[in-house]
Design a protein around this nucleic acid. Structure first.
Length: 564
RNA sequence: CGGGGCGUGGCUCAGCCCGGUUAGAGCGCUUGGUUCGGGACCAAGAGGUCGUGGGUUCGAAUCCCACCGCCCCGACCA
């Protein structure tokens, strides 16, 4: 490709509204242009990268026997109503104004409908279907460039199996395929156990790229490899347990005590035996959540425990429900609440909690004697430095960007959409499903996050828009032009993708800066200086290393560099 | 949706607080010339409803109100 005629607008200055390096560089290097919040146009050089990533995904999906579809982005809203996901997605789902249609944010419903209509027998199973489609989500707050957009490409695949055992197999195939996809895309990534959310399902894992700008938080053990999204991460924390003394409950006056720390200070005891009360609302029912001391409630865990989303109750509502303000709520004598507690508090005694009237607490509470707990769940948010649940090593907590999610769905969609098959015995059974997603843009953004410097992008060969950036230093020098043209032809004929900077009237420094910004793996610099000796200069973008080689060896040398 | 910031040629920004010639700079763009190994130089040019609407005023980029857009933090993120 000749740069003189290629549409590749580069920017010298950073765009004002880009915070992350990948975002800045994608705009500066002419990959994308913003159109509206969370909506981007892909320019030719960016689209080349996108197509390469998609090709890697296709090859690895095809390799596990997956079959590519292309499904509509416009979906009848009825299908989404059947699975209850119009409500589940809420405002995130885009609705078409003048037809009862929605813009699909994902495609479980449509694939399942096709399965329902066409998969009748155990002989039709298993199947793995996928597509690479534009998804639409009305994100409340798009951010980080293409990492969270309102329109984005997702590779989504779905497995259909006869049993949960076979689902495990399909799930495993995806897990291995994903590892290959990310590895081939040149990413350093890790896999974490993840939340299945309120939608059910029997297990899921996320593929993560560590980044300070990541929206997810994960616990990582550097010793045994344990890694989990904070939504599900656990650690070895001591249960609060039982003390020998078991006094009857007693109301104590605690004037103007609002926080756990104040209470601990006032009573001269550790925070651990203070059962902190948090009041939530799930649908229209009230839930009291008890945590030990300053343990932080993890709302994702709460959602998993309740099986539905819960919201912290507003102070006014709280007072109406309980007659006391936050800070004075407690489980003893509390009516009309479902009461659940964190595992650390299981069967504990000698606890102190709110008395449901301001300025009073109740002491000597025994959870197995004085309170009816509807269940103990792991509800606390773990903290950095706590012990790994597997090996006891100190856990690290890192931010990460989610680049893929694999999910054992089970029968949720097949049951609600009646996707059944007849087994060998003639019994009708729901198909067992899995769903698996990859954010295509995120692969590109993360690749840049992991491969850039002050000057620009440092593409890995596998997804670089071009293999070689060929720059003719001076287009007014006939020998230089002739040598560059010859190289352009030779390299192209050798099947190497070349971006050839043949622009006239552009100074050498300008060309070099552009080459570094654009970041092709190998730069080939044809200039008078080296050409006098019949030499060509090669620069490896990743390392900055320069080699001056005889013209006759250039092709071999480049081939060699691209192989590594 | 809550909190904060911003909106001025294509890009990055100054001017606004304290209203008053013709609204500026750098980069980019056009033309001519000189350059030619790390974002060259000289000269001459083109290009702006100062986000939109309303208000205050003799007079508004500047003050006031509303709205729209964009970014950041939070909430949210099957």
């Amino acid at each position: 490709m000749r740069l003189s005629t290629y549409f590749l607008p580069t920017l010298k200055e950073n765009p004002a509204d880009a915070a992350m390096a990948s975002h800045r560089l994608m705009v500066r290097a002419g990959l994308i242009r913003p159109l509206a919040a969370g909506i981007y146009s892909w320019l030719p050089v960016g689209w080349r990268v996108m197509k390469k990533v998609m090709q890697i995904i296709r090859e690895e999906m095809d390799a596990i026997g997956a079959q590519e579809f292309q499904l509509p982005a416009l979906n009848p809203v009825e299908i989404w109503q059947e699975t209850g996901r119009v409500e589940a997605f809420g405002d995130t789902l885009f609705h078409i104004k003048n037809r009862p249609l929605v813009l699909a944010p994902t495609h479980e419903e449509i694939f399942t409908t096709i399965a329902k209509d066409n998969i009748k027998s155990y002989r039709d199973l298993p199947q793995i279907w996928y597509q690479i489609q534009t998804k639409f989500r009305n994100e409340p707050r798009p951010r980080s460039g293409v990492i969270r957009g309102r329109q984005f490409f997702m590779k989504d695949s779905y497995s259909f199996d006869r049993s949960f055992e076979e689902l495990d197999k399909s799930y495993g195939l995806h897990r291995e395929a994903y590892k290959k996809i990310y590895t081939r895309s040149g990413l350093k990534f890790f896999i974490v156990g993840a939340s299945s959310g309120a939608m059910g399902g029997t297990g899921s894992q996320e593929f993560m790229v560590e980044s300070p700008d990541g929206e997810d938080t994960c616990a990582v053990c550097d010793s045994c490899g344990y890694a989990a999204n904070l939504e599900v991460a656990s650690s070895r924390v001591k249960p609060v347990g039982r003390l020998e003394a078991s006094n009857p409950v007693e109301e104590i006056h605690t004037p103007n005590i609002k926080t756990i720390d104040q209470l601990a200070e006032f009573l001269k005891i550790s925070t651990e035996r203070l059962a902190k009360s948090l009041v939530y609302k799930a649908d229209d029912s009230a839930v009291l959540v008890l945590m030990s001391g300053n343990d932080q409630l993890n709302e994702a865990k709460l959602t998993a425990a309740l099986g539905k989303n819960a919201k912290a109750m507003e102070p006014a509502e709280l007072a109406a429900f309980t007659g006391a303000n936050a800070g004075s709520i407690g489980p003893v004598g509390l009516k009309n609440f479902r009461i659940i507690a964190d595992r650390r508090l299981e069967e504990a005694n000698e606890l102190i909690s709110g008395a449901n009237k301001d300025d009073f607490h109740v002491a000597h509470i025994d959870f197995s004697r004085d309170v009816k707990i509807d269940g103990y769940f792991d509800l606390r948010t773990i903290e950095a430095g706590e012990q790994c649940p597997n090996c006891g090593h100190a856990l690290r907590i890192v931010n990460a960007i989610e680049i893929g999610h694999i999910f054992k769905l089970g029968t949720k969609y097949s049951v609600s959409l009646h996707a059944n098959y007849l087994d060998e015995a003639g019994a009708e059974k729901p198909v067992v499903m899995g769903s698996y997603g990859i954010g295509v843009e995120r692969i590109i953004a993360c690749h840049i996050e992991q491969n850039h410097d002050e000057s620009g992008i440092k593409w890995g060969v596998s997804i670089a828009p071009f293999d070689v950036h060929l720059a003719s230093v001076n287009m007014d020098n006939e020998d230089v032009v002739a040598a560059a043209e010859k190289l352009f032809t030779e390299l192209t004929e050798a099947g190497i993708e070349v971006l050839y900077d043949d622009r006239r009237g552009v100074s050498p420094g300008f060309k070099f800066k552009d080459a570094d910004l654009l970041g092709m793996p190998v730069q080939v610099i044809v200039g008078e200086r080296n050409l006098k000796q019949g030499n060509i200069e090669l620069k490896i973008r990743r390392t900055g290393e320069r080699k001056v080689v005889p013209g006759a060896q250039v092709l071999d040398e480049i081939r060699n560099l691209l192989r590594n």
